[in-house]
């Protein structure tokens, strides 16, 4: 399989008073056509920044330090702005976290979809086509939906519209940044179901960013676990879930809210907090919170590749 989207040694930092917060540190990932890659991690681990960097639409103050984001072999970070714009929405599309605010409140759904498509090909912005795509993502009465305003739709419906918008141009890569986080449980199940249908009908690559283990288990082929801006473990979903090798992955999987610690009656947590990313540690970033840490963990960590497609960023990963 050839990679359609390839992130290579990417670093992103936020400018702050008196320094820079290194949100993404030396991340390399790739995803192939027909594949679903999950990016998992707790809040603040840099996963949303990484997603934004994949279309080079970083928030104000964030800058790519080094690295490349290759879309079909072309580094989009080095393209002139107009060429980048031409790729957005057409070759790589994004679904955002909060469907409540992702749409313009004073324009109808139909007008917004038409504008998104029309930015690339005005010929494709016909109501029939837009309505057909809305029907495909499971919106009943799609024609009347085109005439509605965003606030007239439920959160789940809006997220369906957002997914429809992303699919309209048949992109090579679909990036979904926390697509179910802002939804209630029923809606979440429906959106997961929709994505599972997409796995068979959509022939591009899908990247799903989430902190939700269930979403990863349900949808993804491969998963990259992020901690403190780094990918600490990567591999096939089954392998990661059944045989986690990084202590952070193990701790994260143990934090399943379905499992309550019978002795204390509390939900499982990971003690401690994220390291200060304005001065990241030289050694393993998880070392202060790690149960199996040793003195050697304060030294720079080598990336180990125990098997094909598997990588672990840990001194003691194999133990």
């Amino acid at each position: 399989m050839t990679a359609v989207l390839e992130v290579q040694n990417l670093s992103v930092a936020y400018r702050m008073q008196g320094g820079a917060l290194q949100a993404v540190r030396d991340v390399s990932l790739s995803v192939a056509r027909g594949e679903v890659l999950g990016i998992m991690g707790e809040s603040g681990c840099g996963k949303s920044t990484l997603a934004a960097a994949m279309i080079n639409l970083l928030p104000a103050g964030a800058r790519v330090g080094q690295g490349a984001v290759r879309l079909n072999g072309t580094d989009i970070l080095r393209l002139p702005p107009a060429a980048q714009r031409a790729l957005r929405g057409k070759s790589v599309a994004m679904v955002f976290q909060d469907p409540m605010t992702a749409f313009n409140p004073v324009l109808t759904i139909g007008r917004q979809l038409a504008d998104f498509v029309g930015a690339h090909d005005t010929g494709l912005a016909q109501p029939e086509r837009l309505a057909a795509m809305l029907t495909r993502v499971g919106i009943p009465d799609a024609r009347s939906c085109l005439g509605r305003y965003p606030h007239e739709l439920s959160g789940g419906m809006r997220q369906r519209v957002a997914i429809a918008a992303a699919l309209l141009m048949q992109p090579d890569v679909l990036i979904a940044d926390e697509p179910t986080t802002a939804l209630d449980v029923t809606m979440e199940a429906q959106i997961i179901h929709l994505f599972r249908d997409l796995r068979t009908s959509f022939d591009g690559a899908i990247v799903i960013v989430t902190h939700h283990l269930g979403v990863i288990a349900e949808l993804c082929d491969r998963v990259a676990v992020m901690y403190a801006g780094q990918v600490v473990e990567e591999g096939a979903v089954d392998a990661i879930f059944h045989d986690p090798q990084h202590p952070y992955t193990r701790a994260l999987l143990a934090c399943d809210p379905a499992v309550v610690d019978p002795s204390s009656g509390r939900l499982p947590t990971i003690g401690g907090r994220l390291p200060d990313l304005s001065a990241p540690p030289r050694g393993c970033a998880f070392e202060p919170r790690c149960r199996v840490a040793a003195v050697s963990c304060r030294e720079p960590v080598p990336r180990q590749r125990p098997s094909a497609g598997r990588s672990v960023l840990c001194h003691r990963g194999a133990e």
Binding site: L57, R85, R88, T101, P105, L107, D115, A119
Partner: peptide
Amino acid sequence: EAPHIRTARAFGMREGDIVFRHALRV
């Protein structure tokens, strides 16, 4: 700064179109 403008950018709309067609109405 609103998220919906980021959406418009993520779909490759021209900055001028975003300003006049989407942001001005709000």
